[in-house]
């Protein structure tokens, strides 16, 4: 590869995503079943104390995986120029990204699990499809601050119109934007935001009977963003999970490469490969992640089924 060609068409990709977020409320198309199907078969209250806000990050990841694979094959800028024009009329992501059903079901399983963990810990959790929405993460990451402020104010209005003042999030990016970013740009922002990992009560969990050793990968926006890394280790230790630390962990964690997967799939994949190598060098049997973006990017680099979400591990420890 010649020098300076990892990022081929940033402005065209950013324009497509910006348009979709502002006009369609989501960066790429996902079916209603994908977004909300995790509540099928469980009776989630429509009112309560803590609003469970998924931010769609877990649900969108299977679509992003397919899209990134296609983006990495685009060598012609004209296609993206055409795509960004057509996208204003028809959502092009609808036609180019269809993930496997089992991958979506895996994501539903993760969300259902998180809900059950919270209920077991004694929280009165509620959920409403009309409130849950994409939090605007990519507007933030692309530096589109005017759009982010507009989007954040609209989101805050939506929350307040339902009297929401306590939110539980499920992924680090949504947590960071709702907890750290919007309070600084949305006037009078007053919502208490906590990740489910800060709330689960280890005493409600059963021990995990396993001889496997797990390497832990901290997501940047948990470890450095909100200082969440010790609690996750304590929860895992309390259920008997054997955890090993890779080179670069805790607040010194090493990014999985996922945040630039849409702008530079090749570069992003190479970072994922290097991080995976660090994690495997610990000698661990499996790798624990707690972010859907980390999961997608590390799995892209991995040839075996050895990467699991922390909630999938705690699932076996949950008794309800």
């Amino acid at each position: 590869m010649s020098m300076y060609n990892y990022v081929a068409y940033p402005n065209k990709i950013i324009e497509i995503i910006r348009f979709n977020i502002l006009n369609r409320g989501i960066p790429i198309h996902a079916s209603k079943w994908t977004l909300f199907g995790w509540t099928d078969g469980i009776d989630v209250p429509r009112e309560g104390e803590w609003l469970l806000f998924t931010g769609f990050m877990y649900q969108l990841t299977p679509y992003i995986e397919v899209l990134v694979d296609k983006l990495s094959r685009i060598k012609n800028g004209f296609l993206l120029t055409l795509g960004s024009m057509v996208n204003k009329v028809f959502d092009i992501s609808r036609f180019i990204s269809t993930p496997p059903r089992e991958r979506i079901m895996e994501v539903h399983d993760v969300l259902r699990n998180i809900y059950r963990l919270l209920v077991a810990s004694g929280y009165r959790v509620w959920y409403d499809e009309a409130i849950d929405t994409y939090p605007g993460t990519l507007l933030y990451e692309f530096g589109l601050d005017a759009e982010l402020k507009y989007y954040g104010e609209r989101l805050y209005h939506r929350l307040k119109s339902r009297g929401v003042d306590r939110i539980i999030t499920v992924d680090p990016h949504t947590t960071y934007i709702l907890k750290k970013v919007y309070p600084s740009i949305v006037p009078n922002y007053d919502v208490k935001v906590l990740s489910y990992l800060e709330l689960i009560d280890p005493s409600t969990l059963c021990r995990v009977e396993s001889e496997l050793v797990y390497a832990i990968h901290d997501p940047c926006y948990y470890a450095r963003g909100i200082g969440l890394y010790q609690g996750t280790r304590e929860a895992l230790a309390s259920v008997g999970v054997r955890v090993v630390e890779p080179r670069f962990s805790g607040t010194n964690t090493y990014c999985c490469g996922g945040p630039i997967e849409s702008l530079s799939p090749t570069f992003s994949a190479e970072i994922g490969r290097r991080r995976l190598d660090m994690l495997l060098r610990t000698g661990a049997d499996k790798i624990i992640v707690m972010c859907p973006i980390c999961m997608a990017n590390l799995r892209r680099a991995s040839s075996s089924d050895n990467i699991i979400d922390i909630s999938q591990l705690l699932k076996r420890a949950n008794t309800i």
């Binding site: 300076y4 060609n5 940047c220 630039i260």
Partner: peptide, 17 residues
């Protein structure tokens, strides 16, 4: 070069700390 440099940043905050 500028775009290549700025858009390959992960905004992971490792450098900041």
């Amino acid at each position: 070069v500028l775009k290549e440099s700025i858009y390959t940043c992960l905004i992971c905050m490792a450098c900041t700390q």
